[in-house]
Computed example of a mutant assay.
Amino acid sequence: MQIIYHLGAHCTESERLCRSLLRDRGPLSKAGTVVAGPARFRHVLREALETLGGAPASAETQAFLLENVMDEDSPDRIIFCNENFLGQPNWALAQNQIYARAGEKTSGLRQLFPDAPTAFYLSMRSPATFLQTLISKGNAPKQTGAALLLDPATLRWSNTVASIREACPDATVTVWCDEDAPVIWETVMRDMAGIDDSLELAGAFDLVETLINKRGMRSLRQAIAPGMAPADRHRIIAAHLEKFGQADALDMEIDMPDWTQDYIDQLDAIYDADVEAMARMPGVRVLRP
């Protein structure tokens, strides 16, 4: 059995992705993949993490966890989604890092099922919009001087991923950009669930349908056929977003003190280079259109 942890991140539609997977819980279960219900597993896993303190779980503890988080017997994989696995949102940028305790947190998760192959999934977004969104939701970084000491130009998702890989060298890490999520949503779902294109997913359009108008959504559903190759699906979704996208849903205005457009462009360029760096890291996969 393979263990999948979706780590978030915050402000990247991670909860919506969890809901999309849960919508398809029945078909996925028949295909051998269990999507654990958050209300059922979060308390159980949290208590186990606190009790173990980073030590590997015994066979008895693992059996207890599985019995309490699912009803299925011996699935091929089980998915746990929790955007707080790496910490609470107001600690997401503490110590001028993106999830400074990512290595420690994922090491603890890895030890819950130490003998099972494990994979981590993480969605990212530009530090410029990540910081803006965290603050707009009341989650300003918890550090002395708050955002005054935070230099977004020094933030690197690759450092976060590298710390996960160092802490869990036998676990793979799959990442994608939140900016690409509307186009690759179904691809992410299938990759996380370990299924091919033959199984139709009810949650495949859960994100894109919030971004385009009703006419565009009708056209999109007609244009995409079951089993269509991912590249063709991505191309069609991108075209519909361009033609039918709702500007107020697609465009985010960044309003940070003293941030010029040139500075925002600089942050985006750093982010793009960081994604390319992650694509070259051993044990790391980047899902892209």
Rank of each mutant, 00 (worst) to 15 (best):
R233M: 09
V175S: 03
F130A: 03
E60Y: 01
Y263T: 11
V188E: 03
R285D: 11
Q132P: 00
T187D: 15
I3R: 08
G53A: 07
D274V: 04
I264F: 09
G216V: 02
D265I: 01
M124R: 04
P169V: 10
D170P: 00
K137Q: 14
I254A: 06
P89V: 07
S219K: 11
L207T: 02
K137C: 10
V275R: 10
E50Y: 00
L211M: 15
M192K: 04
L7T: 02
L52H: 09
L241E: 08
L112C: 10
G54N: 09
I264W: 01
L112Y: 11
M252Y: 13
E50W: 01
A181M: 14
G32P: 06
P141Y: 02
L45E: 04
A162L: 11
G103I: 06
Y263S: 12
R221K: 11
A146R: 11
G54I: 06
A249L: 08
S123K: 01
D265T: 10
A55T: 07
P289K: 05
L201A: 02
P169H: 06
L86H: 03
P75I: 03
L22V: 09
A231T: 13
E166Y: 01
V208S: 09
R215P: 00
A239Q: 14
E186G: 08
A181F: 14
R40V: 15
I254T: 04
A100G: 00
P38H: 04
W259T: 08
P89W: 07
S136C: 03
G53D: 08
L149S: 14
I224E: 06
W259D: 13
D274T: 04
L86R: 02
L66N: 08
A223M: 08
I270N: 13
D232R: 11
Q97A: 15
G54D: 09
A247G: 00
L112M: 12
A229Q: 13
E253A: 12
E242M: 03
